[in-house]
């Protein structure tokens, strides 16, 4: 089965000058069309057996001597294709800053505290309805060097495999009502009509009483083509 094409009205362009790093890193020549072969119709599978016991709980998988600081959140959503069919048994990887806006990554030099009890990395696998779910701490905003007084909005990085390498997606989930979204060239680099798909929704139904605020972030991957192409 072939996969539907990348919808370039949904994805950011390779070169978006307001996001300065794109200027020297985005390919400039037209992409060469590639009719999908077996190589593009297949991809790696990582099921539940590839997960560690605490992989879906970022409030616990980095603990050393206590609980991480910050606002506990639970994030869930459905992964579907463009026909709304669930993408089952697919790996969802996440990584994020801590509540203070600091990444564990060694090159992050932002002068905000590390949390000894928070790593910020996790993963889960979708169920039969395409649902994923993980616990974490709401990430803080942090400054970056793109322009004067530049701050990234609160966000969680997501990486999804989907059924083939053609469905691969790396994206970021944002939080509703964040005033930094209007000022962020990474978010703004996304075609306007598609931006709202990157913003999670607060849900009181997902919120766990006395424990964690709930956010819903549904993800749509490229789907199976209605008219499979011949190879």
């Amino acid at each position: 089965m072939s996969t539907s094409p990348r919808d370039w009205s949904s994805h950011p362009p390779y070169v978006y000058p307001d996001y300065k790093s794109t200027v020297l890193r985005g390919p400039t020549r037209p992409l060469i069309p590639l009719k999908h072969t077996l190589s593009e119709r297949t991809g790696p599978v990582y099921g539940h057996d590839s997960l560690g016991a605490l992989d879906n709980d970022l409030t616990r998988n980095g603990r050393r001597n206590g609980e991480p600081l910050g606002e506990r959140i639970v994030v869930t959503g459905r992964v579907t294709d463009e026909a709304g069919r669930p993408v089952r048994n697919t790996l969802v990887e996440v990584w994020q800053a801590n509540a203070a806006g600091r990444y564990v990554h060694k090159v992050d030099q932002h002068d905000a505290p590390l949390d000894p009890n928070f790593l910020g990395g996790g993963r889960c696998v979708t169920d039969d309805e395409g649902r994923y779910r993980f616990y974490s701490i709401k990430p803080g905003a942090y400054p970056w060097g793109n322009h004067h007084n530049a701050w990234r909005p609160n966000h969680i990085h997501f990486s999804l495999l989907g059924p083939s390498i053609a469905t691969r997606l790396v994206t970021q989930m944002y939080f509703p009502g964040d005033p930094l979204l209007d000022l962020d060239p990474i978010f703004q680099g996304t075609p306007e009509a598609a931006r709202s798909r990157l913003i999670s929704k607060f849900s009181i139904d997902v919120t766990e009483p006395s424990f964690a605020l709930g956010y819903v972030f549904d993800i749509v991957l490229r789907g199976a083509s209605a008219t499979p192409m011949e190879v």
């Binding site: 919808d7 910020g120 749509v220």
Partner: peptide, 18 residues
């Protein structure tokens, strides 16, 4: 409608996750 979720950059700090 089920439209594709937009891609975003992997950023500089992917290493401890990926």
């Amino acid at each position: 409608a089920f439209r594709q979720t937009p891609s975003q950059t992997v950023g500089p700090y992917f290493a401890y996750g990926l």
